[in-house]
Design a protein around this nucleic acid. Structure first.
Lengths: 154, 154
DNA sequence: CTGACTGCAAACCCTTTGCAGACCG
DNA sequence: CGGTCTGCAAAGGGTTTGCAGTCAG
């Protein structure tokens, strides 16, 4: 299963204009790698992208794929599932709660929400399989990091 | 900031009974490590736990901390934030959507939900800092893995 | 042309594992 | 006492980085 063709080319156009705006170079490798991610429904990892891209550019290296994926991520045209460059983290709070994750420092803060707890999942979510847990992940920049950024600008 | 004392001892009691029920041994190291995680509000990583625990058991090794955290996780008395033993995954779908993550095979499936999109976050979440994105993460065992499990049992 | 990008290889970091001795129950 | 658990050290796997050559703009 692939993302439909029109959507892919729309994404590619967005990518091209983003790369231009950033003053970066549109290389063959970057284009092919982006196309691969943009047309996949499976949230591929670097290795998977690498294997797929190698069919079109047999000489490409895994490092370039890594570098390019990070580049695309910084550019904002792809996102990474779970800001998980980090180490594994543990939590002994087993009651139902949600997370606020700081994209800058990685800190995770809990919050509760009755409204969120009461929500019913759409059928499209349920039919994927059994459900063990449901929680909301909010990402942003925490107050401490925001403050730090303002101080730098001064 | 620490978790309040009563809550910690409640969690420790639960831990003790869980370890007994599992027929595992309650060692000094396990107790101290669990206490540390249970009294922290910061979702510590292995390194952080290690540094804290070393104050009480100076000879403890980082490996033991890792082993114990995984043990606690298998025991079900702590959970790990984001099932992220895995590699990093990327997504070029920037429109608002949510994820169903299979705990078994790691596959991630998208789903949409108007109801979820319309939700307003509680103040306690907003006041942590700026908000970049909000999405729901549902964890479970996907149909394919469920089927695989049934086949094994047969 | 020139600085940014790529491929190669080696380093890096977090995490896991094999082993022998120590300790819980 | 027996089997589990710990500490040590070394390996493992994913990811990043330094370097020199290459290529887009």
């Amino acid at each position: 299963m692939k993302v439909d063709e029109f959507e892919v080319s729309r994404r590619v156009e967005e990518f091209k204009s983003a790369i231009q705006k950033a003053g970066a170079k549109l290389t063959h490798q970057r284009l092919i790698i982006f196309q691969e991610v943009a047309s996949s429904l499976e949230h591929p990892d670097a290795e998977t992208v690498f294997r797929a891209v190698r069919k079109q550019i047999p000489t490409i290296s895994l490092d370039t794929v890594y570098r390019t994926l990070n580049f695309l991520s910084d550019l904002g045209v792809v996102s990474s599932l779970s800001p998980c460059r980090e180490r594994m983290r543990f939590d002994a709070n087993l009651s139902r709660h949600h997370h606020y994750v700081c994209l800058e420092c990685g800190k995770v803060m809990d919050f509760k929400s009755m409204e969120l707890d009461e929500i019913t999942l759409p059928v499209s979510a349920m039919e994927n399989g059994s459900i063990v847990s449901t929680h909301v992940e909010v990402r942003g920049i925490c107050n401490l990091c925001l403050k730090r950024q303002t101080e730098k600008t001064d």
